[in-house]
Nucleic acid binder design. Sequence first.
DNA 1: CGTTCAGTTGATGACCTTCAACTTGCGTGG
DNA 2: CCACGCAAGTTGAAGGTCATCAACTGAACG
Lengths: 258, 258
Amino acid sequence: MNDCSTKPLDLAMLRLACQNCSLHELCLPVGIHQEDVARLDEIIRRKRPLARGDHVYRLGDEFRAVYAIRAGSVKTYAMTETGGEQIIGFYLPGEIIGLDAIHSGMHPSSAKSLETTSICEIPFSQLEELASAIPTLARQLVRIMSREIHSDDELLTLLGKKSAEERLASLLMSLSSRLQQRGFSAREFHLSMSRNDIGNYLGLAVETVSRLFTRFQQIGLVTVNNKHIRIDNLDALREMAGIVGGGACGEKIRTGST
Amino acid sequence: MNDCSTKPLDLAMLRLACQNCSLHELCLPVGIHQEDVARLDEIIRRKRPLARGDHVYRLGDEFRAVYAIRAGSVKTYAMTETGGEQIIGFYLPGEIIGLDAIHSGMHPSSAKSLETTSICEIPFSQLEELASAIPTLARQLVRIMSREIHSDDELLTLLGKKSAEERLASLLMSLSSRLQQRGFSAREFHLSMSRNDIGNYLGLAVETVSRLFTRFQQIGLVTVNNKHIRIDNLDALREMAGIVGGGACGEKIRTGST
DNA sequence: CGTTCAGTTGATGACCTTCAACTTGCGTGG
DNA sequence: CCACGCAAGTTGAAGGTCATCAACTGAACG
């Protein structure tokens, strides 16, 4: 596996490493000077792989760093007073978590590994320092946060308006396209989260999720085998998901103002 | 009314102006040098007040600026293929819109005035330039975006999990506390959006919203008079809203993993 | 080989949407 | 100034979607 904390000296190797590493967005596409890439690399701490169930951070922890996922997957969630989890997001390789903690200096959510997962820790004070020295880095950070806002907005739309069917289809489409962006298969992947997690995230009962998987399989949309899923009809699934992911039809406006 | 585009010379006046202006977050609390505040002020364009129904920007518009709301209110929404609106957020004085457009360079949503509204336009390329010259400004921008992510996450939780009752209670609590932060009354305010907008936003039918207002009034939570609302029992409303706003009990975990 | 927990499937019912009729508020024109 | 007409909001009845309760199956583990 590639390693973000390779000696900062060997730049060629570093670039290669970070291309498959989640941080490549933060450095490679913006034409940062080579020495700047090395500086960025210096502040990044590669942590030992996390086992399933390990926490990256917990609600209430002091905010010190953001984290990029290099391999595996993570769920973020808020705890409710009664001890229940409310899942806020699933994060895949190439994505950054902890951005919601910047403004208050404290993590408003927890992040837990869903499988064996390796992450890079990016101490935020150093990132900010570096960003003020490298404007393109600052820009890239703002751009990443903007995308996070936009994707939250999309999800928000999804949860506010869509039927159970549309929600699950949207989740699958989202996972599919995000995995594809990172060079994984768009049509066949592993669901690292439990049915319970999916239900929690989508605002549905576990039983509903289960029934939906069954129905999706019956109508030839997907083939499900426990945690393994293969998408057999991507177009139909996209259509079922509605606006999310672009290019949808057959959507059902239930409370629209038109 | 205070005016953000006052001559940048008179700094005392400027600070006073921006204190009541939505932009004070961007400059005042971070101890920016006086001349820097003036520079920030220079790039801000105060636009003429918008009438109800006017657009700040439309979906698909090229991204050139973010906008701070000085007075009035705005809704942001995405259009669905069939022409229906999906409302993403309601924005009040002191809040910034357009942040979701940064990463793609194009507005992924539209913003429409809900009443007579005045806004400040902040050209983004100039803001970025200025931010690279003034690190504290860059930090403040990142902080504001972080808060936007966090509040989206809260709303996301809300829509995914809560009953109609909890949703409306949460919206009212959110409006109340946001208005209070800006020096308005927390207990009595004007609902600038229609029932239709509220329903659309919360993922509920108009009729449901109407019934809920009626029920809330019957049990002494609020007094509603068309668009005017007075909150009579803030604690009970907070409790009904659940985790949002802190300090909730009687919550109902319907799909929790515990 | 039994225990345990995640996942599946079925039956019932609650909540909220939908459809429909009615009321209220408000701007326009007689 | 009042009357009309339309849009927004309210209220009632019926039906659908999804949660809940319960039983069962299958996989992982000691």
